[in-house]
Each structure stands twice: as structure tokens, then as C-alpha cells.
Computed example of a mutant assay.
Amino acid sequence: MNILIVEDESAICNVLKSYFLNEGWEVELCNDGAEAARMNAMQKFDLIILDLMLPGWSGEEVCRAIRKESNVPIIMLTSKAEEKDTIHGLNLGADDYITKPFRMKEVVARIYALQRRMNMLSAANDVLVTFNNGKMLVNFETKEILVNGKPANLTSTEFKILSVLIKRPGKIYSRSDLSYEVLGYRFIGDGRTVDMHIKNIRRKIEEDPRTPAYITTKVGEGYRFNFHVDEGQQ
């Protein structure tokens, strides 16, 4: 795995790099937001660790720029602990959010969980399928989705959430179950992180996100996907 660490505090960079190298991962460091966006455009990374408080471009600006180019998984690091900051980061396309100070074992565990889920989905799904009489096309191999012929541009985590739901249409997944299936751990708190990912997915795939057709909510229980694979593809 090739990881880009975007962090302007050298002490944190060095600790992260040391742990990651010990796991056998390749690591590149960057302390400037604009340079990080340029590096991502020039080469392929498997994961980006992105600090929100950076000189020059902020972490939010970097995340926004990267999302225009790729769906590379992004884990944000920040000292901002308020829920609204977490939601804002996820809205920009981050896949996970870790608050400083953090434990390195937790960071490494989350990376492994993310990697494991990505590998499982890639191994289990290598076909192209359609739903809703061809209105939604899902390519599990390239992790691309077209809705009414237009790219949905889901982030890595958004695609994984949708993949979990569409593999078992009609099944209700609680927030905790979705968190475990996608991230490899159950959420801590009220589950707003999962809700925000669902909100983002709906915004990208639904004709009217306020009256969703693909992903609906069963109050007090969770979320479900409402369409089976189009006839002839089962």
C-alpha cells in the first residue's frame, strides 16, 4: 500500500511514517496542501492521511480538489472535535475522520479495516449490473456508477455503503451494521457519520433526495435498498 501523509507537524509525520513503514507500507510525506493535490494528480496513492489545519490550502480545499480527480480513500486528521466539523469533512468526501490526539494502534487498525473491506468487495464483485430497468448501472470492478447515463461520482466509502445495501435488496441495515460492514468497526456515538454518508449518496443517485426511491429509511431501524438486479442478470 502506498500512503500519502499530508501533515505540517513533523513530529506527527515521523510517528505515522515509522508505524506505517513497520507495517510494510510505502510512505510519502507532504506538508503543503497545494503540493498534496498536485502529487495526487501525478501519481496513484492507495490512501491519503490528510490534516485539516495546513498552511496555504486548508485540508478542506485539498479534499475538494482531490475529489475532482479521484476516489482515493481519505482519512482526515484534526483537532476539531465538534460534530459539525466531522459532518463537514464527510460532506467534502472524506472516508473516515480521526480526532487528535489519537492512538497509533487505532489509526493502523482503521487502515487495515478499510483495506480489508475494499479487498472483500473487489473479490466478491467483478461484474456489471443494472437496476431499475437500466436507470442505474453499477460496475463493481471499476467502482463506477451511472444514473440515467451520468456518473454519480461516489467516494470510496459511499460506493462501499451502496455496495453493501444493493447486495441484499430489501434487507434493513442499522447504522451500526453499515459501519461494521464498510469500515470494519461499529460507530461510537449517535451514528450521524453513517447518516451523512447516506445523505451524500442520495444526493448523487436520487432524482429527488427528499423523496428517495433507491435507498429508503425505516424509522428506528435503518436503511434498505429497494431494487433487485434487473431481470436476466441474477
Rank of each mutant, 00 (worst) to 15 (best):
L165V: 01
L165R: 01
E106Q: 11
P209L: 12
Y97R: 02
K100T: 15
R116L: 14
V108D: 08
F225A: 05
E181G: 10
E60G: 04
Y185E: 09
Y112T: 11
F225H: 03
E144H: 11
I166V: 08
M136A: 06
D51A: 03
R38E: 15
N40E: 10
L183V: 12
L47I: 14
N153V: 10
V164L: 05
I5Q: 00
T130K: 01
S70E: 13
G89S: 14
V15F: 00
R103W: 01
N2P: 03
Q43G: 07
A123G: 05
E69F: 14
E158I: 12
N119R: 11
D95G: 06
K100V: 15
D85Q: 12
L146W: 00
T78D: 03
N226G: 02
S179H: 05
A113M: 14
L146F: 12
I5P: 01
D32R: 10
V15S: 06
F45A: 02
I201Y: 01
D177E: 14
E26T: 08
M136F: 10
G56F: 05
L90K: 01
E141I: 15
A94H: 07
R203F: 07
P73M: 12
R64K: 14
N71E: 11
I5G: 04
A124Y: 01
S58T: 02
N91I: 15
N133H: 14
R203T: 14
K204I: 09
H197D: 02
R202A: 04
T217E: 06
K167P: 00
D195I: 08
V164D: 01
